[in-house]
Nucleic acid binder design. Structure first.
Lengths: 355, 355
DNA sequence: AAAAATTGCTCTATCGTTTGTGCTCTCAAA
DNA sequence: TTTGAGAGCACAAACGATAGAGCAATTTTT
């Protein structure tokens, strides 16, 4: 075994460099190196010559200061916690992509936590994020219980909620205007003559589900139609829920002509059930789903959807978080609702005059 | 402004607790608190009484030791870097979910980096991850260039490649058996009488694209068919590529009867193009895509696909990484290829006797 | 030529934990 | 009454980077 000199033929593990190593090799102090690398050379009257040497050697040795040590000293980690219920849900994946990119541009990294829509897990992950000294958090809480989220408002670091939120907490949030979205979906049904429309609900108690339900109800009322409670079914945003509830609904009755699905996953499950039961879409039953994805245009039939402005949501969340981190004591934005839009495709049939 | 006592009505930001605060309040040393919280009370002869008090107070104050300070002292952050080309690609989203969960169960958090399939970004993110002192990395490199990835082999921390990999580097990898997958797709075409099959390629130089191409070629040869190079088109895994290449292909010729798309995104783009050109699937042209997703069964037509064992890939990656972290000097697994499977749906038409 | 200002750094303490070493008791055995 | 062993903890030094204060040269001013 040789003594040291990097032997690149084998997997020679190089010991991590420190600022001291650089300093020693140049015969300067660690402070100097730190200041040069922080771009504060001028400010601290480091000679151009010294600065150049430090930079060059660092580059040559591929040295970057230990961010952990830095974080400890500065009490700032340049890390943001991102907590979402399910990264494999395209809506959240898109959001994660957007947020990750936006924050990266401002020098922040993100720690990704997937709560799997589990409250206990969520609580645990929140503790974990704090223990990791994140500078801020972006969370899409499971959404049914607020107590542990409420504690976040007392934390010394900014937090922003997204999608799932609690409007009564003193924590800013960004979301689609779910109420509006539901009404847009319903209006589309009405225009095409539908009046009996089932609602496949998402997680009860969560803001998106409740707001969408409110839109559903109000749209019916405004058109002088009665809300049939037995047409409101389901309690989760997943595919399973869409499948099961549609199955049950179809066993019981067939007098409704439209289904409003609160997520694309629910819609997907519903489609499976409809197919199994030999119900054609949209000839027998029309369908509108929340959440737009490009591939939905290849569905059979191409799905009419309510599109959420995912990018705008992500951008806004990032903007709020950055601004809160810059000036923690400014008045907080209370909550922002971004408008949805209807994407008309072919899953809604005209069955009569507009209501 | 009151002095201190947490005033929960307002957003009173509580100063972060430290181990010293706990120690002081109990009249013991920080050492003792640390040892109790690390579960080393017995080992260090801390009385049950003291231990109980420490635990209780910590719980009551919701205290968790500062992981940053811990990381600095222990030179171990319990953080893993996850670098992928695009989190909004369902394949990687699924992988991320799996990996995140698996690592979390072992006490590790993940820092998510999305390179957006950009080499420069990838290089930058790798530096960033090292500077954050991750204990290990899971990377799906862009895949065209290996030099910066090769450096990883010399790092003192374990790295595992996934999906996109370089087999000649001394870094373990886990991936689908892309070669096999392509052959499975081709066999399905052959069984149904197809002999002229176009290939919509992914990113040139990346292992998945090259291996799938190899499978495509070999399958043709084995059946005594000539490889028509002009039927091999495209250079990216995205939707755009699928769309554009299909358009171009259709302008030029219509003598092929099948399309092998190297990703579901490519397939999606191809479908759009086919539709625009009035080509019916599968009546006029059959289609098989790599990457399975449940919703593909709702496509028009339901897509026949090659399914990658995403969960097994994720589990395996995690297993390898954990084992490398436990015993860094053990012989490394060189590379693991997991079998794919054909999901038969309705996008392949029978057009003659099997070849 | 002496005082003042400027240049170009270095020294030291610090962030919050953990660890090796060592200190002070108490109680029993010799 | 001294010695020894164990129990129960505290002290101080690290981990790597940074901010404030300070200090020796050199240059400028008067």
């Amino acid at each position: 075994m040789q003594k040291s000199t990097a032997d690149s033929s084998h997997k020679t593990k190089t010991a991590p460099l420190t600022i001291k190593d650089i300093a020693q090799e140049l015969g300067v102090s660690a402070t100097t190196v730190s200041r040069v690398l922080a771009g504060k050379a001028k400010e601290h009257r480091i000679s151009d010559e010294t600065a150049k040497q430090v930079i060059e050697l660092s580059k040559r040795k591929n040295f970057t200061p230990n961010a952990i040590a830095r974080g400890l000293r500065l009490l700032k980690t340049h890390t943001i916690g991102l907590l979402i219920p399910d990264i494999s849900n395209p809506f959240f994946a898109g959001l994660a992509r957007n947020v990750t990119e936006g924050l990266h541009r401002h020098g922040y990294s993100i720690i990704l936590c997937d709560s799997q829509d589990d409250l206990a897990m969520e609580r645990q992950l929140l503790d974990l994020l704090w223990s990791r000294q994140v500078d801020g958090m972006i969370i899409a809480p499971v959404g049914q219980q607020a107590s542990h989220v409420a504690d976040l408002a007392r934390m010394p670091k900014p937090v922003v909620m997204v999608d799932r939120f609690f409007s009564d907490l003193k924590i800013p949030y960004v979301s689609s205007d779910n109420f509006l979205g539901a009404k847009q979906a319903m209006e589309c049904f009405f225009e095409n003559g539908h009046r009996k429309i089932a609602c496949l609900k998402g997680l009860s108690g969560s803001a998106p589900a409740e707001e969408r339900l409110r839109g559903y109800r109000q749209a019916l009322s405004q058109h002088g139609l009665e809300v049939d409670e037995s047409l409101i079914r389901g309690d989760a945003f997943g595919e399973q829920s869409g499948y099961v509830e549609t199955k049950l609904l179809l066993k019981r009755r067939r007098d409704f002509t439209g289904i409003f699905a609160m997520s694309n996953l629910i819609a997907s499950g519903a489609l499976t059930a409809l197919e199994e039961e030999g119900v054609r879409v949209p000839e027998d039953i029309s369908l509108i789903a929340f959440d737009e994805q490009p591939y939905l245009s290849h569905f059979n039939p191409p799905l009419t959807t309510i599109a959420q402005p995912v990018e705008r949501i992500g951008d806004t969340v990032v903007k709020i978080l950055l601004s809160q981190m810059k000036s923690p004591d400014q008045p907080q934005t209370e909550g922002i609702l971004l408008p949805t839009s209807l994407v008309r495709r072919k899953s809604v049939a005209r069955i009569g005059p507009a209501v």
